[in-house]
Design a protein around this nucleic acid. Structure first.
Lengths: 141, 141
DNA sequence: ATAAGTTCCGTACCCTGGTACGGAATCAAG
DNA sequence: CTTGATTCCGTACCAGGGTACGGAACTTAT
């Protein structure tokens, strides 16, 4: 017999390959496992674990969600909705995140306008002293 | 004599009051002092330090800037704009900060656009079977 | 004047999101 | 079957941004 006790489809890869495919490093995968975001397949008694393509998807999902500003805890919540059946709940999470991001955008835009003003006044030599940046950004205190 | 050796305007408050007014806790103020973001007023020989309203503004500013994604080191640089004497120096600093802010804005805008798209697809119920947010997060792997 | 509440100061510890290390076991190729 | 690369697993460490602790000194209210 050729195959002693298991046929391993090429799609089932070891952790290094998973990490590479997902664009993170091995330690990060393990870290996600410790955090409960990725699960450890049970390993073939004394052997090395193998991961299915869905694990790759999962890790990529995590990275993408992070880029959208979700923390790992939040990503965990999103992953629980991964079956795609709880669209409503998912949407609430997304809307909440969106609101936070929009607030930050507003603040940041204010800051940007202020800096631009400061810079142009500086160039014009109008203001030898300091700028009202703090006064403006800490307004309403 | 009533006032032994100093008149203390009510606006000059002790650290606990400062912390409360700024919405952070005392330890955080001290931490900022260690990091050089807030300075320690010299204390009346053996007594307790008192802080002026500008200290409150400063702390509030720090918190806001942080929410916008600036690290404490960056906030420190921003604060030097306010303290700044030399206009030329200030301008360079301001231009640098402006660049950082614009990057951050770009990031946040990207997140916002994506989230908005996803949310609206969700609402439109275009994909009845699977949630578009989840689908996008796992797509194309 | 005395008790209760703050402040001061140093040091130690916490969480988040990872990265690094190192020895033993296991796998894959020649 | 030997060699070199991976995996496993635990533990330690990193940066950033704080929080907690504890005793002594000081302030404030009664």
């Amino acid at each position: 017999m050729k195959s002693r006790n298991s046929v391993r489809p090429a799609t089932e890869v070891p952790i290094g390959t998973l990490a590479e495919a997902a664009g993170v490093n091995v330690e990060t995968i393990r870290y996600y496992q410790r955090r409960g975001l990725v699960d450890e397949p049970n390993k073939p008694l004394g052997g090395h674990r193998r991961y299915s393509p869905s694990a790759i998807k999962r890790v990529v999902f995590i990275k993408r969600a992070q880029q959208l500003g979700f923390t790992l805890e939040e990503v965990k919540a999103l992953l629980r909705l991964e079956d795609g059946q709880s669209c409503g709940e998912t949407r609430v999470l997304a809307e909440h995140k969106l609101a936070i991001i929009e607030e930050r955008l507003a603040d940041l835009n204010r800051m940007r306008r202020l800096l631009k003003t400061l810079i142009s006044e500086c160039s014009a030599g109008k203001r030898p002293r300091s700028c009202p940046i703090i006064a403006t950004l800490s307004a309403g205190v």
